[in-house]
């Protein structure tokens, strides 16, 4: 059992790289777009302020799990670019689905950041960074749901490994092994957050 898992470690690790890629990209896109919304809300830009408030509400309230199915069924699977047909891989759809909650989160956090900075409150940047890192952890955990639409990430790959052996024990051990990858990543991120909190 352990040998089988050892043999598949490289395969699972490449799947986990997809989880990290999905998480990093959705945090990246979401942060940029959310910061713009947050700035518009903090500045109370006429007309755009209420609109960005509504946009934030939508992003915050709609579950990423539902958005996954939404993106999977509503986004075309191929696009034509300069005469070349290109497939839209499922991990990109998962990234888009996870970008929405990040926009909602960053919009709220950056609104607070801009308001605090204007009020001259010190440490607004650190508060933002710590909250952002904690949210990154939530997004990494959420990236595991990408397997439900067939994205080729670690949980999906674990299911393929499990399908070759029907014993309950093997299934349990494989899932626990995959959990370990998430746990270690979570602990590393928490370590960084603790380090930053102490540095404040």
């Amino acid at each position: 059992m352990i040998e089988v898992l050892y043999d598949h470690t490289g395969y699972l690790a490449r799947g986990f790289a997809t989880n990290l890629l999905i998480s990093i990209l959705s945090m990246g896109f979401g942060t940029v777009l959310g910061t713009v919304l947050g700035w518009l809300r903090a500045r109370r830009v006429s007309g755009l302020g209420p609109l960005s408030h509504f946009g934030t509400n939508v992003c915050r309230n709609v579950p990423s799990f539902v958005l996954l199915f939404y993106m999977a069924s509503m986004i075309p699977s191929e696009v034509e670019f300069g005469g070349t047909i290109m497939a839209v891989p499922l991990w990109i759809k998962a990234t888009l689905a996870l970008t929405f909650p990040v926009i909602g989160f960053t919009s709220d956090q950056s609104k607070g950041f801009f308001e605090q900075r204007r009020a001259g409150v010190s440490g607004a940047g650190e508060i933002f960074t710590i909250a952002w890192l904690q949210y990154f952890l939530i997004i990494i955990m959420a990236s595991a749901t990408a397997s439900v639409i067939g994205a080729d990430e670690i949980v999906g790959r674990a299911n393929i490994v499990i399908s070759q052996n029907e014993s309950a024990q093997f299934l349990l051990v494989t899932y626990l092994y995959v959990s370990l990858w998430f746990l270690v990543t979570g602990l590393i991120l928490s370590g960084i957050v603790k380090g930053l909190t102490r540095a404040r």
């Binding site: 955990m141 439900v148 949980v155 299934l171 349990l172 959990s179 979570g186």
Partner: peptide
């Protein structure tokens, strides 16, 4: 907190 909930469900429902 650090295990994806979907994985926790698989572990408890199918594994355990």
């Amino acid at each position: 907190r650090m295990t994806p909930p979907i994985l926790q469900m698989y572990i408890v429902f199918f594994g355990l």
